[in-house]
Design a protein around this nucleic acid. Sequence first.
DNA 1: CTGAAAGCGCTAACAT
DNA 2: ATGTTAGCGCTTTCAG
Lengths: 343, 343
Amino acid sequence: MRKDITIYDIANQLQLSTATVSRALAADPVVKKKTRQLVLETANKMGYRSNYHARSLRKSRTNSIGFMVHELQSTFINSVLAGVEKITTDAGYDLIIAHSLESYEAEVANARNLFHKRIDGLITSLSCETKNLDHFQPYKDKGVPVIFFDRVDTALDSTAVIIDNYKAAYEATTHLIDQGCSRIVHLTANLTRNVYSERLRGYRDALHNNGIPLDEGLVIINSLTEEAAVASAKRILCMNPLPDGAFITNDFVAAVCMRTFKEYKLRIPRDIAIVGFNNDAISTVTEPALTTINYPGEEIGMTAARRLISHLEGAGSIHQIQTIVLNSRLIVRGSSQKKAPNA
Amino acid sequence: MRKDITIYDIANQLQLSTATVSRALAADPVVKKKTRQLVLETANKMGYRSNYHARSLRKSRTNSIGFMVHELQSTFINSVLAGVEKITTDAGYDLIIAHSLESYEAEVANARNLFHKRIDGLITSLSCETKNLDHFQPYKDKGVPVIFFDRVDTALDSTAVIIDNYKAAYEATTHLIDQGCSRIVHLTANLTRNVYSERLRGYRDALHNNGIPLDEGLVIINSLTEEAAVASAKRILCMNPLPDGAFITNDFVAAVCMRTFKEYKLRIPRDIAIVGFNNDAISTVTEPALTTINYPGEEIGMTAARRLISHLEGAGSIHQIQTIVLNSRLIVRGSSQKKAPNA
DNA sequence: CTGAAAGCGCTAACAT
DNA sequence: ATGTTAGCGCTTTCAG
């Protein structure tokens, strides 16, 4: 493992100054074309690789952006990550990822860690347990841009990329009502996060506007693991009378509920119509296929990353704060169609 | 956005030398406890954050490791990533991720990029199109450790974390034979990758050892997208006579095939028994639930990361090359049980 | 068009 | 137990 080649070595070899070598390497138009050519060739021949840290130290920019999420093992989060990665890589930025497994402490630690690593910007979705947003204050203070997606907090005047969860839930619930449902369960998660509280609001308003009285007993709040899903499904099975529709906040949970319902001989959608959320791959292989809301993860990731990078490149002075709302839409499949498709 | 606080500022404030401050910050036992306390407090009060790049430059180590994969939107890869992240974060390393979307060129570019970023080590799974492994040569030359998982190449004398794909496939196929299948399709992907070629070998040997003649027409090689899966399923449906069993190299593809088969009124497992691969979440919500091979992604990720870090911390002189084979096992569910479970 | 030289913030000999 | 000092490799004025 011999020593690394530096620009000094190249400069020596070529009897040039390091300044010229540096400029040549950076494709500064001020250097003679021939010199540049020569430097490039020599660098290549000698096996030179630029020292990223010396450069970062000098320029005080890291060219890396953070991606901090509550969970990595989620198809939705992963499609976002894939979208982000696509954009950041093209733009020459590194992605440093961190996940908090829904723990507030871990999120705080990760935020501090990334901050100390001097990421140029952060893309993040909050953990369910996060109440306090103080850990983003250092970013604010130093002018490091933070972009939120999915789980955001209105208390923070930052850029956020989201969908209209209220509208999506309203649509989903209305669809169930249109199919003849009148006792509709809503299975969702921790309401401190906007995504879930907004969906609940949409569900409530849809019922109300259709003259269906609200029954708080039909709202189940639980975590989104398989075990929790089975437990929730069983709780629904114990309701009397049985609900005839269910709007479930996540496709995987919806799929597990469907499985459980079927084990108990319920027919779907006949006995109970189901609408999920996310349009995960799983939604097309359940039986019947799952009606769901298309939540465009990859597009969200790409949008967030583009926004961040354009902020980073663009003078950094744009303090324009905005909420970007992407389109979502209801995808009707078999699990919710009590009426004939073309009725 | 005011200037950053450095150790010089702290040293000034406290009338100490930067050396002492540096040592105090690094918890060097040689500094007086009281001094250390003081430095820590002051640093905190002044809003100091260490400059990661100055440090990396000085120590010529980056404390970051690369994770380069062919695809990010895969439940398997993601469980590996989650496992890796767990270990690396605890050990104080950053994770820089890159994905190549199965393109050889992108893989080469990513490998070079990560190399130039001076990652301390790399964890990777090869793209399907990768034939040539020259892009790992620089890592070899500079002694940067590379650990492969899942899709590995025996030509490279590097550490690899895998399962015994041959054995898993042998077991899966034997299970189908035990269930009375005699015309078993194998649906798999690009054979230049060990995972798939080994599985094919296991499938073949199982047939052979059970006296079932090999019919190359029953081996279908295709990519692993939803469209490809539907196409493969249709190809199987056109076979005459129809196969009575299918060993499919990936749960998602298996689930899509099942769906397609059922659309064509095949009964599973009665008409065709199915075994998938991976034990993805999807395998428990299909109907019937999918028999599959448990491929422990998170454990693989944790193992690879631990191995890499212990190499990195441990003198770096351990040139011990090894292949770590983790256990996998057949999980029998409804999709393959032609015989009564306790027959 | 090219060179000299300062300095980004930190660590680690080497002194004291 | 603390201080002095010399770089790590690069970019970037300022001078030619």
